[in-house]
Computed example of a mutant assay.
Amino acid sequence: MRRRRVLALLALVGMLLLSGCLGFFGDDSVPAERLDQEPAGDGYAWNESVDVHVTVRADSTFQGVYRVNGSELVLYRNDGLGGRNPLDVRAVRYRYPNGTVIDGSTLAERGSVRETRDEVTIRTPVAGGQVAFTAESTPKRFVVPTYVEGSYEVVLPPDRDVSVPVFGRVSPGGAETRTDAQDRVHVTWDEVATDTVLVQFYLERDLSLFGGLLAVFGALAIVGVAYYRRQIRELRETREEMGLDVDVGDDDGRDPPPGRR
């Protein structure tokens, strides 16, 4: 009986290994249809002078262009528990140092694009060049690990801002901001050596909405305080009429208390 249990356990482990459930023999390649998707908008910003250029889009995605120092780029997100999850990259492109751009499936053939439980590893055909991709972001908050150290630029969607504290936040400090002709805020760092880049932003109309709500709640608070004070005053007057708040030390014994005349 014990031998049968051992054999059954070994068979189950073997099935899991062969099916890739344990991550040892599963296919870790990224599908070509995902790699070769067309980037949204005007495509990738290849010609910027920074080492990392990120365009955050209004649909809660971002387009990143990373200058590769060697021949490998590892992409992931921190899960908040000390672990990692692979970044959901798509529309991957590689630009050779001479300016030639290839799509994701060609990059996978000439180099490699592999996804595991923890990360996506992109190996380029030659050292250097730029890797571009599209991935999911978070509404009103862009945050990713620092895959590449160097200069950074994060471009926000139109009508977004970071200048008001609490609503807006930029990390690491020392960033410069400017607004272009399309009303897009550019956040730039000359050098980023921290573990994470974070830009928390807001729609400009959010401030007007918040100001309106604050005014409404302020008015309600004033009305509430006035009503409360009126109720207290009426209650005091009622008690005085009933003689409940009369100090007996002031009673001369001749006249009845107020309200009992």
Rank of each mutant, 00 (worst) to 15 (best):
A181L: 13
G173I: 09
V192H: 06
S163N: 13
L156F: 13
W189R: 13
E153L: 13
A181P: 07
V166N: 06
Q200R: 14
P172C: 09
T179V: 14
Y152C: 04
E204G: 10
D180T: 03
G168V: 08
V197K: 07
V154P: 11
V162N: 03
D159M: 13
L198H: 06
D180M: 07
V197Q: 02
R178N: 05
D195E: 15
Q200H: 07
Y202D: 00
L198N: 07
V185D: 10
S171R: 14
Y147M: 02
D183Q: 00
L198W: 00
R160S: 10
E191Y: 08
V185I: 09
D195L: 07
A193T: 15
R184C: 04
E176L: 12
V155R: 13
Y152I: 06
G168M: 03
D195Q: 12
F167N: 03
E204L: 15
V155H: 08
T177G: 08
V197N: 00
R184P: 03
R184E: 01
T177V: 03
G150D: 05
Q182S: 14
V192R: 09
H186V: 11
H186G: 08
F201T: 00
V197Y: 03
E153F: 02
V199R: 01
T177R: 00
T196F: 12
R178G: 06
E176K: 13
Y152S: 00
R169W: 08
T179D: 03
P165R: 10
R169V: 09
V187E: 08
Y152M: 05
L156R: 07
T194V: 12
Y202E: 01
Q200F: 06
L203E: 15
G168D: 08
P157I: 10
V148G: 00
V192C: 11
T179Y: 02
P158Y: 01
R205N: 14
V197G: 05
G168N: 07
A181I: 14
Q200V: 10
Y202I: 08
V148T: 12
V197W: 06
A175N: 06
Q200W: 02
Q182M: 11
V164E: 12
W189K: 13
E149P: 10
D161F: 01
R178K: 09
D190M: 07
A175E: 05
R205H: 12
R178W: 00
Y202K: 05
V199T: 02
F201Q: 05
S171L: 15
F201E: 02
L156G: 12
E153H: 02
R205Y: 10
Y147C: 05
D190Q: 14
E191N: 11
V164N: 04
S171I: 12
T179C: 01
H186W: 04
A181D: 14
T196Q: 14
P158Q: 02
E153S: 13
D195Y: 00
G173W: 02
G173K: 08
V154Q: 09
T188E: 11
